[in-house]
Amino acid sequence: MAKYMLIMRGNDESTAKMMETPFDEILELMGRYNDELIRAGVLVAAEGLDDASKGVVVDRTGEAPIVTDGPYGETKELFGGYYILDVASQDEAVAWAKRLPAFPGTKVEIRRVPSIDEFPQDNEWIVRERAWRERTGQL
Rank of each mutant, 00 (worst) to 15 (best):
G41P: 04
Y33I: 01
A64N: 10
D59C: 03
A102P: 01
P120I: 11
D91S: 06
E74Y: 14
R9Y: 04
V57K: 05
V57W: 01
E63Y: 07
I66Q: 15
T21M: 07
E28G: 07
D12M: 09
R32E: 04
R111Y: 03
I84D: 00
G81C: 08
Y83A: 08
L49A: 09
I38N: 07
E28S: 12
L49H: 08
G55P: 04
E118N: 14
M18Y: 04
L27Y: 10
M30E: 05
K76N: 12
A88E: 11
R112C: 09
D117T: 08
W96P: 00
M8K: 04
L27C: 12
N11H: 06
W96L: 05
G105T: 03
V127I: 15
L100I: 11
E124W: 15
E118L: 15
V56H: 11
G55F: 08
L78S: 13
V44L: 03
R39Y: 06
M19K: 11
E118H: 13
L85D: 01
D59T: 01
D51Y: 08
G105E: 02
V58R: 06
K107W: 12
A46E: 05
K98G: 12
S53E: 06
L29K: 03
R9L: 10
L27I: 13
G62V: 03
V127T: 13
P114T: 10
R112Q: 12
T61E: 04
R60K: 14
L43Q: 08
A46S: 12
Q90L: 15
A88Y: 08
P114W: 14
A45T: 10
T75Q: 12
Q90W: 12
N11C: 14
D91W: 03
E109I: 02
T21Y: 06
E77N: 08
L100Q: 08
Q121V: 05
R60S: 13
G55W: 09
K54T: 13
E92S: 02
V87C: 02
V127P: 00
G55C: 13
N123M: 14
